[in-house]
């Protein structure tokens, strides 16, 4: 039940999917709010929290990608059309790329920042900076990149959620529920 099969997701993939999804969307909301808040103190503290969850997310994403590469993955139901059959893997690949590149660009931006504020995930340990040159220009470049990569990633997430709803409410197939529990997938009558 931990591992995937060719017809259903196992618990590891399911838990990682929802945990990462929750943190990613939470990070987007937090990131958006923390740079617009008036209180400099709250803003500073929220940015440190954003960095902490960002590093946590990066760690989870690396585990997730490792798990994905070392596991089978369930195919799409037969009814799924040719266009979606081609689109889905590209969107999923782009989502994986976003999960890596958005936190990495955040890490890059704090690494090159002239403010040189150390990163201390959840106040537990000092996370070293990426070996990049500190400068005002580099900082502006990475802030810009991080911001727009995050916006693009959220657009992908929205597309992904809409596709999942389409499967569930329109096509009425097992695609959404099999990401909720391995048992639901089986109950839906799909062979193990």
């Amino acid at each position: 039940m931990l591992r995937n099969t060719t017809t259903r997701y196992g618990w590891a993939a399911i838990v990682l999917h929802w945990l990462i999804g929750l943190i990613f969307i939470g990070q987007f909301v937090l990131g958006w709010a923390m740079v617009r808040i008036a209180s400099q103190r709250t803003s500073f503290e929220l940015i440190q929290l954003h960095k902490s969850f960002g590093f946590l997310l990066l760690g989870l994403v690396l585990i997730r990608i490792g798990w994905r590469l070392g596991n089978a993955s369930p195919g799409l139901p037969e009814e799924v059309g040719a266009m979606e059959r081609r689109a889905a893997p590209s969107v999923h690949l782009a989502l994986y790329a976003a999960q890596l590149v958005v936190p990495l660009s955040g890490w890059a931006l704090v690494s090159v920042s002239v403010l040189e504020i150390p990163s201390m995930p959840f106040n537990l340990f000092v996370m070293p900076n990426l070996p990049l040159g500190v400068s005002e220009q580099a900082e502006n470049f990475w802030i810009f990149s991080h911001k727009w990569l995050a916006y693009a990633a959220i657009a992908l997430v929205v597309l992904h959620i809409l596709a999942a709803f389409r499967h569930h409410f329109w096509l009425r197939d097992v695609v959404l529920v099999r990401m909720i529990s391995p048992f639901v997938a089986n109950r839906a009558g799909k062979p193990e």
Partner: peptide, 14 residues
Amino acid sequence: GQGRVDAFLKSDAV
């Protein structure tokens, strides 16, 4: 020596 840090220190954060 860093304007953003100065503004932070002068603000109600500090």
